[in-house]
Amino acid sequence: MTAGTTEHAAWTALETELDAWAAAGRAAEVWWRDDDAAAPSPALERLLELAARQAAPLALAVIPAKAEDALARLLDGRRADIAVFQHGFAHANHAGGLAQRGAKKCELVDPAARPAVLDELRRGRESLSRRFGRRFLPVLVPPWNRIAAALLPRLPDLGFTGLSCYQARAAAEAAPGLTQVNCHLDLMQWRPERRFLGAEAALGLLSGHLAAKREGRADPGEPSGILSHHAVHDGAAWDFLGELLARLAGHRAVRLAPPAAVFTREVAG
């Protein structure tokens, strides 16, 4: 089949999956997270305009050490369902010497190996709370979607109530008092080159998670998450994201869930 034919088939498969949710009388919960926010930019303004046009709730994962006051001003007057999450602290790799042996990048390492991570997360949370006020939700988004298991039970004591990583969650709580809701469709392919993943692959990820929830193969209480990275989108990524949000918003089975609702209750399957 040609690329156009396979892409059309992927959109049809998503529609068919959503129709199955509607036929079962169930709401397909979908939410949207965008990573690496820090300062106003044409790309971020484009993202916010897209959210407004589609009336789509959005969680902006903001890097505390890089966040500018101008970002808070940019969000002033925007929709109340645009929330701010905490994206690590400085988005810095602390895998240390392990990186030389092929370890993947990680900022949120075991505090036994780097105790400073605890104070950084606390200071980051306090700074975002001061800067963004009610928009800020104490949800931690680990850079590169990686966090040491030993750090998880420490997060509630640092003031965090939520955690968001990537791929289907293993449980509704990553630790007692720490709700976990992940994303399942990353628009970007990162290796061997950074570019849009492609419509067929992207839609397959979203349709696959929705089907797994509907059929009981994945946690039905976890909303299906879209993950974007406004700063690195190419034209194809922007076009796809706009079409995806429009189609989701227009389907009777879909509920685009606000971040606050996602992390303050279990969404019914």
Rank of each mutant, 00 (worst) to 15 (best):
Q100C: 08
I147H: 06
R125V: 03
G88I: 00
L137S: 08
L108Q: 02
G97F: 13
K105I: 00
L151H: 05
F136G: 03
G88D: 10
F85I: 05
H91I: 09
A150W: 01
H94F: 15
L140H: 11
G96D: 11
L98K: 12
A150M: 01
I147K: 02
G159H: 03
A148T: 05
V109C: 10
H87N: 06
T161S: 15
R130F: 07
A168V: 14
F89I: 10
C106Q: 15
F136E: 04
Y166F: 15
F89V: 12
L118C: 08
R154K: 09
R130A: 15
R131I: 01
V84H: 03
L158G: 09
F136L: 04
Y166D: 14
A99K: 02
R114E: 11
D119Q: 14
L163R: 10
D119Y: 01
S164F: 06
R130M: 10
A116K: 11
A116N: 05
N145E: 09
A148K: 02
V117P: 04
G124F: 12
A95P: 00
E126R: 15
E126P: 02
E120F: 07
R114V: 00
A168E: 12
L121V: 03
A103Y: 11
P143V: 06
G88T: 00
T161N: 03
R123E: 14
L108E: 00
A172E: 15
A172H: 13
G159T: 08
F85H: 03
C106I: 15
A148P: 04
C165D: 08
G102P: 13
Y166V: 07
V139Q: 08
V139H: 07
Y166L: 15
R146C: 12
G162A: 10
Q167L: 14
V141W: 04
R146H: 08
